[in-house]
Design a protein around this nucleic acid. Structure first.
Length: 592
RNA sequence: GCGCCCGUAGCUCAGCUGGAUAGAGCGCUGCCCUCCGAAGGCAGAGGUCAGGGGUUCGAAUCCCUUCGGGCGCGCCA
């Protein structure tokens, strides 16, 4: 049902025929040309650039690109779905299809809402792992986390819809120094819960109130038994207890945004010994076996030398062999593994679990880490797996155009929950996706709950509600009309001959192609923009019905025309609902 | 000093693996409701796509360079 893919295949077949006739060279990469919707509707339904892309290769057989294009056009004209094909400009091929092609697409969409646009699973595509959020388990989620969270979740949905086998994963950073700090902070709350006056939370510990219930829960579990123990005794159990509590908190926060991961992967689990070794050691050994590890010295960074720079020999990974700028250390001066070493082991685990496409969603401040991680994935997989890192820029939280102040100290930050409670999950999700991930984003708490066209969330949801309302309204005019998919799909769509109706149909027909491209580019924001465009086309056509009553969807005098128009409305709401579902935003029946 | 990201209308941003005359919303100007939801729509004004070179049939898009902004730069996660 992808009109554009269909014609790409047809034109490829035509080119192949020309190859066997010896008028084109044998080796041509058909992936180089595109069939796309023309920007200017007067150019027809589809435009193809094949004649220009293969101009060089066709020069011997055809001469100028236009002549080559004429040959393709002649072949296209014989296709039964083509109304007309012509050459334009330097060699564009503009194709107009017969209207029934669109009728068929709309009929399919009406009859298979939720399926239209979905791609069949590609056999050789391999499993995809999308890792996102991965916030440190030291407290509730900050508003800064929500962009990556929503982005990763929508991307995963998009890829699944595009036919990929997707796993959503969360990496728990439960092995660093910060979780020890968490444990000490929780232990303090534990003493507090036992009646001790702890006063101000000392510098270096987490001050937030959210640890108080953890202290109480520790008392419930351990009583007073931890009080007179040395830290070496209580640290590990308290740490695990606190981490579990924090992860419960985080899962709750994510649930408020309708986000659910299938796998929570513990960093600490990588350092659990199996005999004499653990996963990190195993990963390093694997690299060593490929001669990618050596003992050496790194040159200091250019420019300002760090204060505590000390030239020393260390264990290095040859990431420069895979495009990194310098080789990267795997051991700290105290002999422990670096975070990078665990990350290598973690991504090695992903590879061993069968993922050949890995997508990591990070904050933009981790941009400096991308090259080494890609290098590591290339090294551990021998080039069999690829890593794409999607960096999400900061969100500037605003209220009525004024920045919302966020002080970092004293644990007084704006939580994700605060924001979701204030404006709702739909608004947060849509706005996080109504911007390219690598562009900064302004999020205005006042604007996103405004019920006006300024607010894209509302604008799109309103279009859906309007469409659904029309279908309900139609039953008042035609109480016996059958609006089930099975009935609507056999509506006589040839009756739809208005330019506004055909424009809407053309836009709907682009949906499968849009899905494919957005999935390929790992860019869910394209869905959001498409839905906004689609909603706009609908609103626009709707308003034409105010001047020309004959264009209204419901026409009491013309039963069959109304039925056909309702089929169009139904396909429209189906695509809106489908796209919104990918974004994780609700498609309301009515606005309240 | 080096690396990555960004620079498009007054503001916030799209621009689909290089495509035809660069788009949308806000703001500004002027319009459209006796009847499917005006919670909407139509029209107008507004651009050296940061500047300069290059690649080619064709560049906002790719390469080089300058300027401007953000992020990062052994042992933190």
């Amino acid at each position: 049902m992808n009109l554009f893919a269909d014609f790409h295949a047809r034109i490829a077949a035509i080119l192949a025929r020309l190859q066997t006739e010896g008028r084109l060279p044998a080796e041509l990469d058909f992936g180089r040309f595109v069939v796309e919707p023309p920007r200017d509707p007067s150019h027809g339904d589809l435009a193809c650039n094949a004649a220009m892309v293969f101009a060089k290769e066709a020069k011997a057989g055809f001469g100028a690109p236009r002549a080559f294009a004429e040959a393709i056009v002649a072949a296209l004209a014989r296709e039964d779905s083509v109304a007309s094909a012509e050459v334009a400009g330097p060699g564009f091929i503009n194709i107009r299809v017969k209207p029934e092609i669109y009728d068929r697409i709309i009929a399919f969409c009406v009859n298979n809402p939720g399926v239209f646009g979905r791609a069949a699973s590609a056999p050789g595509a391999g499993k995809v792992n999308v890792e996102y959020v991965s916030a440190n388990p030291t407290g509730p989620m900050h508003v800064g986390h929500c962009r990556g969270a929503v982005f990763g979740d929508a991307l995963a949905s998009l890829l699944a819809f595009a036919g990929r086998a997707v796993t959503r994963e969360y990496y728990i950073n439960d092995a660093g120094a910060q979780v020890d700090v968490l444990a000490r902070s929780a232990y303090l709350r534990y003493r507090e819960a036992l009646g001790e006056a702890v006063g101000d939370i000392p510098e270096g510990l987490y001050p937030g109130d959210y640890l108080k219930p953890v202290g109480v829960a520790l008392v419930a579990k351990y009583g007073r038994s931890l009080l007179d123990q040395p830290e070496s005794q209580w640290l590990a159990p308290v740490r695990q207890f606190a981490i579990d509590a924090m992860m419960d908190l985080i899962r709750e926060d994510l649930k408020a945004l309708a986000i659910e991961h299938e796998v929570f992967f513990s960093e600490r689990s990588l350092t659990v010994k199996h005999g004499a070794s653990d996963a990190v050691m195993a990963a390093v050994d694997a690299l060593r076996a490929k001669s990618l590890i050596y003992e050496g010295r790194l040159p200091p960074p250019k420019g300002q030398l760090p204060e505590d720079w000390e030239d020393r020999e260390q264990t290095l990974f040859r990431s420069t062999q895979f495009g990194d700028d310098v080789d990267r250390p795997l051991l700290k001066s105290d002999g422990a593994y670096t975070y990078f070493a665990s990350d290598i082991a973690y991504h090695r685990s992903k590879f061993e679990r069968g993922f050949t496409t890995m997508i990591d969603v990070w904050g933009a401040d981790h941009g400096g880490y991308v090259k080494r991680m890609k290098a590591a994935v290339a090294a551990i997989s021998g080039g069999a797996a690829g890593l794409d890192v999607k960096l999400c820029q900061l969100v500037k939280l605003m209220r009525n155009g004024e920045p919302v102040k966020m002080s970092k100290r004293s644990g007084d930050f704006v939580t994700l929950r605060d924001v979701v409670d204030e404006v709702g999950a739909d608004a947060v999700r849509f706005m996080m996706l109504f911007r390219k991930n690598d562009a900064p984003l302004e999020f205005d708490l006042a604007k996103v709950i405004e019920q006006s066209k300024d607010n894209p969330v509302f604008y799109v949801q309103y279009a859906h509600a309007r469409g659904r309302s029309t279908l309900r309204k139609a039953l008042e005019a035609f109480p016996d009309m059958d609006l089930t998919p099975a009935a609507l799909r056999s509506a006589d769509l040839a009756l739809l001959d208005d330019a506004g109706e055909r424009a809407l149909m053309a836009l709907i027909a682009q949906y499968p192609r849009l899905i494919e491209q957005a999935a390929h580019a790992h860019e869910p924001h394209r869905i959001a923009f498409y839905l906004h465009d689609l909603a706009s086309a609908f609103h626009s056509h709707w308003n034409r019905g105010k001047d020309e009553h004959g264009l209204r969807f419901i026409n009491e005098e013309k039963r069959f025309l109304t039925h056909a128009r309702l089929a169009l409305v139904s396909s429209f709401t189906a695509v809106l609902a489908s796209g919104l579902a990918i974004l994780g935003v609700s498609a309301p029946e009515e606005m309240r």
